[in-house]
Amino acid sequence: MSAAATAGTYSPASAAGEKRRERKEELRRHLAEDADWPRADGRSFHDCRPAFMQTGPTTAASGSAYAEFGKTKVIVSVFGPRESKKAMLYSDTGRLNCNVSYTTFATPIRGQGTDNKEYSAMLHKALEGAVMLHTFPKTTVDVFALVLESGGSDLPIIISCASLALADAGIMMYDLVTSVSVSCFGKNIIIDPTSDEEAWQDGSLMVAYMPARKEITQLTLTGEWSDGKITNAVELCMDACSKLCDILRERLKDASSLAE
């Protein structure tokens, strides 16, 4: 960074008005209790954003994929199987190494979203159940994800995109992994939330799922949920994951057709 050392940046100090607080409280009540309200982008509660996915944007990588869900844009590259950089003992199974990072301009405020170790660990947990590690002993498969723009539901999109990139790289897997998340507003459940919706949610639930085998590789839950609602949310996610997996398979077919 070459900004002048003496230069300081500041944002405007916003006066917290009583009127604003009341309006905020009223909006929260409306979100939680009303049974039907239109989402900002016109979707109904159980509609996902249109998904655009594509393989092969990074030719330097063994496999890569690009995903765009509304405003969220993610690019994932897969390298390997290749020799591990770290000196390690021999192992019968390979290693899966995941790293998630954000661009500095991914969020409305520059430089946010730089602490992504948790996302890297969650991506690793979601994928390692699906990758056949025994097929590349002693070597490492590196999965690098870069979030170009963060528009909500980032991690599920990263997981789906990474799964597509692994398939593009020819890594053997039991099944594709797709992931979808939902947000909870009082008694309402909405799927594939945007950033604005995530900012207001009471709780969230994310499912990473292998549709063909009907197995869940990861389930994370935050906030307050009742038992019945959890079941409904998981089923909603699994259904959406199956539909998303159809899209991924279509992309892989298209890619292999082009290769011939």
Partner: peptide, 15 residues
Amino acid sequence: GSIAVEFHMPPICSP
């Protein structure tokens, strides 16, 4: 005004 330039090579771009 001033300009701060940063060139990034994230790990996705090259082995």
